[in-house]
Nucleic acid binder design. Structure first.
Lengths: 247, 247
DNA sequence: AAATAATGTGTGTAATTTACACATTCTAAA
DNA sequence: TTTAGAATGTGTAAATTACACACATTATTT
């Protein structure tokens, strides 16, 4: 028996153990999986890691981890984000829970899917693990993800598409200062369709969350656009006044 | 590095995505809790059971149960419904998962909240357990629910209020044949506000899911209204054409 | 200096939502 | 039998919102 085989055997034993243990006790493993969106080069991207798990070796998967016994679900999701990207204070929201019996090869694992939006240009962003890469959302059509992560991703992506039309979440994906063209590019990328420049502008100004910084774009080969920042405080206040917009 | 350590490292890597140390303490109980809505006497109601758990003895709680090791989440929710109401083929949808560490006195229990709509007049409905009762949603304001079920209920109720404005789910709460007045009463109860009779009528007819049964109300002390039924098939077809309306 | 390619600001039209009025049909009381 | 009452059924006009589209402005590039 080679070294490698022994290791493989140990791995399988561990996985089996997990399975029997879960089944015998009526308890099960719970994980969080984060769909982490970013926006770069006018492209919507998602952060994925190459799986090491035998069955899905080499396949791309979402970033996730088991929830610890003394850890809240949200906290687990934030922990994954912090560990994997170095960022905290990021936008994060629970989307849906996936718990089909056969969804994980290691046994019963119920996973809570979270959606996260981060700014790729943020200097705090640190992707240390070289098995972790950004993938354009478009390119995922041609990739096969591990586990049921394709379905989870689809769910979260559709969730995002709907969500950004009800709440101005997109700002979480942009740098502090941005031009209206950048904002529109973002929305076009998320919604995967062209928008009318003038109506888009009108709509966002009418929301009244954009603050003119007085600055302008630089080093662009055309008339520079004004740079704006998003008034997060104003938005939070309005959200409270609106009351239960979300459920 | 010892042999054992190497193996451990491999296991760890293999379970990447899961937590580093695979131990039984990493597993927890998972339950489903169903917010079962009904509509009777022009009032929106919810089905609750008196808790027998020591800490919440006598308090009203949602209907729920632990998820079995070989049972899908949705299946568990359907099982609860069948066991508690005798009904199957009911409307059911996952809403949100609650997993705070201290939410259950018996230890770590993560619960997946489901929202269900049933027709109280349905002859299949059988509430056998005499600890289970219908409560008007309004009256819940003055009741203290067990566990964190107040929060779960609030979430599901707000979810419902938003949901019925995007999808005609209300029909699941009504008998097969109903008048437009009954339908409006239902929506007014759910949304907790008065609606204009004529605009309401216009809106629903324009949706084109109402089928005239040719029958009329009977034994009403005024001009009888026409009775309609909901075209579930047509709705399902349209939903497919719409594509990903929900996330 | 002219051509080019963005930004910035409207304006008019269609579609949807909202507000509101009147005739019809049945019950129940006089 | 007649009449008052109450709810059903059908429209129509105003107001708001979404959509389509045009033109002047400001910078860069040739």
């Amino acid at each position: 028996m080679t070294q490698k085989m022994k290791m493989a055997a140990t791995v399988e034993k561990t996985l089996k153990g997990l399975q029997t243990e879960v089944q015998s006790t009526n308890k099960m493993a719970i994980s969080v999986d984060c769909v982490i969106f970013g926006f770069d080069e006018n492209t919507l991207k998602v952060l994925l890691i190459r799986s090491d798990l035998k069955k899905y070796k080499g396949k791309w998967t979402l970033l996730g981890d088991l929830v610890k016994p003394d850890e809240d679900l949200d906290a687990a999701a934030y922990r994954v984000l912090k560990q994997r990207t170095g960022m905290k204070d990021v936008y994060l929201e629970q989307v849906k829970t996936f718990g089909e019996v056969g969804r994980h090869p290691a046994g019963r694992v119920v996973t809570v899917a979270y959606c996260s939006l981060i700014n790729i240009q943020n200097h705090q962003l640190q992707i240390l693990d070289n098995e972790i890469h950004w993938h354009s959302v478009d390119s995922l059509k041609d990739k096969e993800l591990g586990f049921d992560h394709e379905r989870i991703f689809d769910t979260c992506y559709r969730w995002l598409q709907k969500r950004v039309q009800e709440h101005p979440l997109g700002f979480n994906l942009l740098p502090k200062k941005f031009s209206l063209r950048e904002l529109q590019n973002l929305y076009e990328a998320i919604l995967s369709k062209k928008l009318d420049r003038r109506n888009f502008r009108k709509k966002f100004f009418s929301m009244d969350f954009l603050v003119d910084t007085g600055e302008e774009e630089r080093d662009v080969p055309h008339r520079p656009g004004k740079l704006y920042k998003f008034d997060f405080e104003k938005y939070e206040k309005k959200k409270k006044v609106w009351g239960g917009i979300d459920f």
